[in-house]
Design a protein around this nucleic acid. Structure first.
Lengths: 187, 187
DNA sequence: TGAAAAACGGAGGGCTCCTCCGTATAGTCT
DNA sequence: AGACTATACGGAGGAGCCCTCCGTTTTTCA
């Protein structure tokens, strides 16, 4: 017995929920009410929970597109001429990405737990591979120290993003701190 | 008309609440139930709210002792011989302090908002003064760049503490990232 | 010791979380 | 087309938390 085609209303509702969640979570942070999401999406609360059994699965759905973009940016830079500059611009691109959804910062912090690394394992691996290759090239060229991983970089970046209060000076400050960190990387 | 002496039961309850909060928040993070705090302290919920009208005021009470220690450490280092090393050891001391209450990390993140800077204004000023003096001495000696504030340092430190997952490798990793940052500070 | 200030406790309204299940409906088969 | 059934829907409901309000109790002080 073949499996049926997924029901169209289910697909539609799923999309509406993700779209609405992006909006609501962006404004209200990661603690926003899921019932509000369901309401605003014009959908019963039961429907929300059927599609996304936990808060985390909803976050994951919201972020998966951004993750994809992050991966692509990283992979596009693998063969850059100056590996250190490539790292820097990758990090800067990420900060810009984060800035577009400042309200999601808290949610991002949640998203970066060990738990969700399993969910994102595939993307994380691709990012890690790309970034680690850059790091290795830079280290081989004697440009930076050897004891740093792609994970370190990512975590530090998110940490710095998270630490600063949102506001007009947010971005330059984050970038400055990040650059100091990169400076420290150099041998 | 003189003011009365504060009632003894009030003082007692206040202390119990802070002590219990330290415990409960340490385990459950900053979202832990305040009703649980009241229950475990053997006190009515109304009593908790009378003493601490908001979640933040309760956090503040919990942290005020640690803040004091942080201030003293900073002030003790002002006249150290090597200003950069002094900065480093101050930061390391803070990391150690944070480690003793790993569970409070999330709460700390909350505590570091603009809002609570008003509450801690006094302590923050003393820390800032001490650290800025160290920074200035180091900068005057040409050891580090000039565009960094004590606030930057503090925030970065908490950010790095917050980014890493708790676990046996937590501390060395945080210290390593912090040292990289300090390295980047150097001119 | 007794009055008044100060503090206490917890009921209660409002909100959220999440589950469960009777009802509705889209896809499939004849 | 019509019927059948897997699939999805909605929202009521129990449980927990937030916070306020106020009648009752305790402590201080004259």
């Amino acid at each position: 017995m073949r499996k049926r085609k997924p029901r169209s209303d289910a697909l539609r509702n799923r999309d509406r929920l993700i779209e609405t969640a992006k909006d609501v979570l962006g404004k209200g942070g990661p603690e926003a009410s899921l019932e509000a999401v369901a309401r605003q999406a014009g959908v019963g609360i039961g429907t929300l929970y059927r599609h996304f059994p936990t808060r985390q699965t909803l976050f994951d759905a919201v972020f998966s597109k951004d993750m994809e973009q992050l991966v692509e940016t990283a992979e596009g830079l693998v063969d850059a001429n100056d590996p250190v500059e490539a790292l820097r611009s990758w990090l800067h691109a990420n900060v810009a990405l984060v800035e577009t959804k400042r309200g999601l910062l808290g949610a991002l912090a949640i998203a970066m737990t060990e738990e969700s690394k399993k969910t994102y394992a595939d993307q994380f691996n691709r990012v890690s591979t790309a970034v680690d290759r850059l790091l290795k090239r830079a280290a081989d060229a004697g440009l930076i120290r050897r004891d740093v991983t792609g994970d370190d970089l990512l975590q530090t970046m998110y940490a710095l993003c998270y630490a600063r209060e949102p506001g007009p000076t947010w971005r330059p400050q984050v970038l400055r701190l990040l650059d100091i960190f990169i400076e420290g990387l150099k041998r």
